[in-house]
């Protein structure tokens, strides 16, 4: 069942770096609880688009509309910075490709998970701790490691910790930039499984940027295919992957080795 208004709407978003047009007139809608994959090769503008959606870079043209939990529709790039930051730490989450960008490496796992709670105003140590313990269990990290800093964790554990840190405030929208990049296939599979079950359980809407079509196939309801800054094809994941229409999508699908 779909709610009547989209959660996030990108309306002809364009971003250029000097003479290079990184994203050209990208438009799409994301509905509550939906998972959208953005695929494309390196340099196709998918990460730039994601950063524009997150408000980190201001698009040269177009706008990004977001419907808040209060039911108000706001233009992300016109919001005041305090407002945008408040949204970013309560209603959204961002999962970085490299967990080092998303975690505080010198702070314990528990502190990492608790940071967003404390930023949102939690001031009861025992409850913050209990919440962190619960989330470590949900992302399959041994509770005995709660006071260890993430630099002592493996790559897969760091990535799972980053996900726990983002999901602890139960955001409505999570943006993920290559969440499985740099992990070996078996760890990738477990991580994907975890993301799929958590996103399903919490009913979170997610946008996942990836160059890995298997990730899109497993997680996404719909996908966008980007090439040279433009969205060349969009549709239901199975539809795009099984019956690609655009020559570039066809090339992308046929480049994957069939195991």
């Amino acid at each position: 069942m779909m709610a009547e208004a989209p959660l996030l709407e990108a309306d002809r978003v364009s971003v250029s770096f000097g003479r290079i047009a990184a994203v050209r007139e990208a438009s799409f809608r994301l509905w509550p609880g939906e998972v959208l994959a953005i695929v494309g090769e390196s340099g196709s503008g998918k990460t730039t688009l994601l950063r524009a959606l997150h408000g980190e870079i201001t698009p040269d043209d177009g706008r990004v509309l977001y419907r808040t939990a209060a039911g108000e529709t706001v233009d992300l790039h016109r919001l005041s910075e305090p407002r945008r930051r408040a949204l970013a730490r309560t209603e959204w989450g961002f999962v970085h490709q490299n967990p080092r960008d998303g975690l505080r490496m010198a702070v314990s796992a528990g502190g990492n998970v608790g940071e967003r709670l404390m930023a949102a105003g939690a001031r009861h140590w025992g409850r913050i701790r209990a919440e962190a313990e619960g989330w470590l269990a949900r992302v399959e990290i041994d509770g005995g490691r709660i006071d260890d800093p993430p630099r002592t964790f493996s790559g897969g554990m760091q990535q799972r910790l980053q996900i726990a840190r983002v999901l602890v405030t139960e955001p409505r929208l999570v943006l993920m930039d290559e969440p499985t990049g740099g992990l070996d296939v078996s760890v990738q599979a477990r991580l994907l499984d975890l993301i799929r079950s958590l996103v399903g359980e919490l009913g979170i809407a997610a946008i996942i940027v990836t160059h890995d079509l298997a990730v899109a196939r497993l997680l996404a309801d719909r996908m966008l295919v980007m090439q040279r800054g433009e969205v060349v094809e969009s549709g239901l994941t199975d539809q795009v992957l099984d019956d690609p229409q655009h020559p570039y999508s066809q090339l992308l699908v046929s480049s994957v080795l069939q195991a």
């Binding site: 930051r85 608790g114 940071e115 404390m118 930023a119 949102a120 140590w125 913050i128 006071d147």
Partner: peptide, 15 residues
């Protein structure tokens, strides 16, 4: 935006 300051105190208590 002072959540980080409490992270420091959280760490102290955890340790």
């Amino acid at each position: 935006d002072y959540g980080l300051m409490h992270v420091k105190l959280y760490e102290d208590i955890a340790r």
